[in-house]
């Protein structure tokens, strides 16, 4: 028997080799000390790596199907991203350096921002995921989990490339909405079922719309019937400035 492929050795450690293949591989290992040592090292690595999933098991869930379950994935970051979306463009930092009147929004922002802000803040984009999966009511739990893992892998890839600043999935129900005087506004079922209903957001550290669009095109949400809006964030992320202060 030739040396088993890495694929076969990995399948052995995963517990997915069938009996015949496994017996062949074990025969080979018992007669090849170098291969046996390689397998044992990989097994030790496997034993170390495996609990990482348990330790982070409650992190990747996007989008969530069960109503009224509070998201636990990157909540602080999602809150930050939500705040960013809510900041009106009149608060853009470019106005800070022009000594605004204290009663203006620009003045209010200037009062809370550190004096050492960079004059040319880092740009950024936010991807807004919209619309529930059209087959959400019929898709099974395994498929939901599989899809959620795709979202997580996509986000993990962005994170590893240092592109992802913040992210978060949102629960399906409409949450609360307040009017100008703080009066609650009813949100209809039609809005929740609408393809425009926001289900998640990702804050990206990219500087061009082309880069942001390229990332959006890879988003699994598009494969499952949702849409992704790409929005530029003024002249940069507030959190970037605060973190650097």
């Amino acid at each position: 028997m030739n040396r088993p492929t890495d694929d076969q050795l990995l399948a052995f450690l995963d517990g997915t080799l069938d009996r015949e293949e496994r017996e062949r591989l074990l025969d080979r290992i018992e007669n090849d000390p170098a291969l046996a040592r390689e397998l044992r090292l990989a097994a030790m690595g496997y034993a170390g790596a495996e609990p990482m999933r348990t330790a982070t098991a409650d992190r990747p869930t996007l989008p969530r199907m069960t109503p009224r379950l509070v998201s636990r994935w990157w909540i602080p970051a999602a809150v930050a991203a939500t705040l960013l979306l809510a900041i009106p463009t009149t608060l853009r930092l470019s106005s800070v350096s022009s000594s605004p009147e204290p009663w203006t929004p620009e003045g209010a922002m200037a009062a809370i921002m550190p004096a050492s802000l960079p004059t040319k803040p880092e740009g950024g984009f936010v991807l807004v995921l919209q619309g529930r999966w059209p087959d959400a009511s019929t898709v099974g739990a395994d498929e939901q989990q599989r899809r959620a893992r795709e979202y997580w892998a996509w986000a993990a890839n962005l994170s590893n490339r240092s592109v992802l600043m913040a992210a978060g999935d949102l629960v399906w129900d409409p949450g609360e909405r307040l009017g100008p005087t703080g009066t609650p506004i009813a949100v209809s079922v039609e809005i929740v079922e609408s393809p425009d209903f926001i289900v998640g957001m990702f804050a990206l550290r990219v500087t061009t719309v082309e880069d942001a669009l390229a990332i959006a095109r890879e988003c699994p949400h598009l494969r499952y019937g949702g849409s992704v809006s790409v929005r530029q964030v003024g002249q940069g992320f507030l959190t970037t400035h605060l973190a650097g202060s």
Binding site: D6, L9, L10, L13, E38, R40, L41, A42, A43, M44, G45, Y46, G48, A49
Partner: peptide, 8 residues
């Protein structure tokens, strides 16, 4: 597999 060996 290589990453696991290294980790191991």
């Amino acid at each position: 597999f290589r990453a696991l060996k290294r980790l191991g």
